[in-house]
Amino acid sequence: MTAVSSPRSVGVLALQGDFREHREMLDQLGHYSYEIRKPEQLRDLDALIIPGGESTTIARLILSNGFQDPIRDFCASGRPVWGTCAGAILLAKVVDRLDRPGIEVMDISIARNAFGRQVDSFEENLDIKGIEGGPFHAVFIRAPIITEVRPPAGAIARLADGSVVAARQGNLLATSFHPEITGDSRLHSYFLGTGISIQREPRAPLPAGAPPELLPFLDASGRLTAWPTRDKLQRAAISYLAPRFDSGQRYSEREVNTLLDRHHTFNDSALLRRVLFDWGYLDRERDGSRYWRADGPAPARETADA
C-alpha cells in the first residue's frame, strides 16, 4: 500500500450502493472518508466519489435530497469527482434509458445495462492509461458502456472490442466497472493523486481546536452536527468538545446539557455527557449532582465500527 503524504477528506455519496467498499479502500490508503447524505456535508471535502449502486435509485435520492446543484458546483470547483458504474451514469451528459436527470457534467454518452442482464456480468483485465504496474482486474456488474466521448473528455480504458469503459475530463473521472470491490487501490490513488490536480476552493477558517478530520461534522459556527459512527472520529469529536468545560468549575447536570447544546445540533446532550464521562473527560459525584472537567481519556474502550 502506498503511503500518502497528505491525507485527504474524501466524501462518498451514501444515498444507496456500495459506499462502504469505497470507504474501506480510502481508509486503507490513509485518507479520511465520510458518508455523505446531506448536501451541506460536501462543504469541506477534497474530493467526492459517487459509488456503484442502482442509478435510478441514486438519481431519485439526489433529486429528493437537493444534491443536484451542490454536486454540479462541486464538480465546477475543480475538486476530483469520480463515478463508478451507477456514478458514471449520473455524471454523463447523455444517458440511454434513464427516466430522470442525473448530474450531467461530463461530455460523454453512456448506455445503461449495455452488456445484458446479470448472467452476462463479467470480470476482465484492462490496460488503463495513466495506471502503471500491469493490467487492472475489473469487475463489470450489469455495467454501462460509454458510447461516445466528446472533447474535452477522453477515453482512458477500452475493452478488446473497443468499447470505452473509463473516461476522464479534467477533475472528473467515470468508470463503468468497480475498482472498489477488487482490492486494487491504484485507481483510487490515481483519482486522488497524480492523475488530477487538486484545486481546492479557499476554506472557511477552522473553528478553534477543530481537527481537520472532524470538519464534515461541524457547521459554520463550529457546532457538531452529527455523532460520527467511527471510533476514531468519535474520539476526535469528544476531545474537541471537552475543552469547552472550564477546569476547576463544578457544573450541574442541567448546566452540562446547556453547554453541550451550544456546541452540537443533533439534540443528544445525554449521549455526549455519558461519553465524556465514560472516556474520562468529565468526572462526577456518584449521584450525578455535580460534574467537573477531568484530565483525559481512560484506556481505549472497545467500540464496534458501524
Binding site: A14, L15, Q16, G17, D18, F19, R20, E21, G52, G53, E54, C85, A86, Q118, S121, F122, E123, V139, F140, I141, R142, H178, I181
Partner: peptide, 11 residues
C-alpha cells in the same frame, strides 16, 4: 460478480 450485484443493492 454474483456477490457484487448484492453489494450494489446495499442501502
Amino acid at each position: 460478480v454474483k456477490v457484487g450485484l448484492a453489494q450494489m443493492l446495499k442501502g
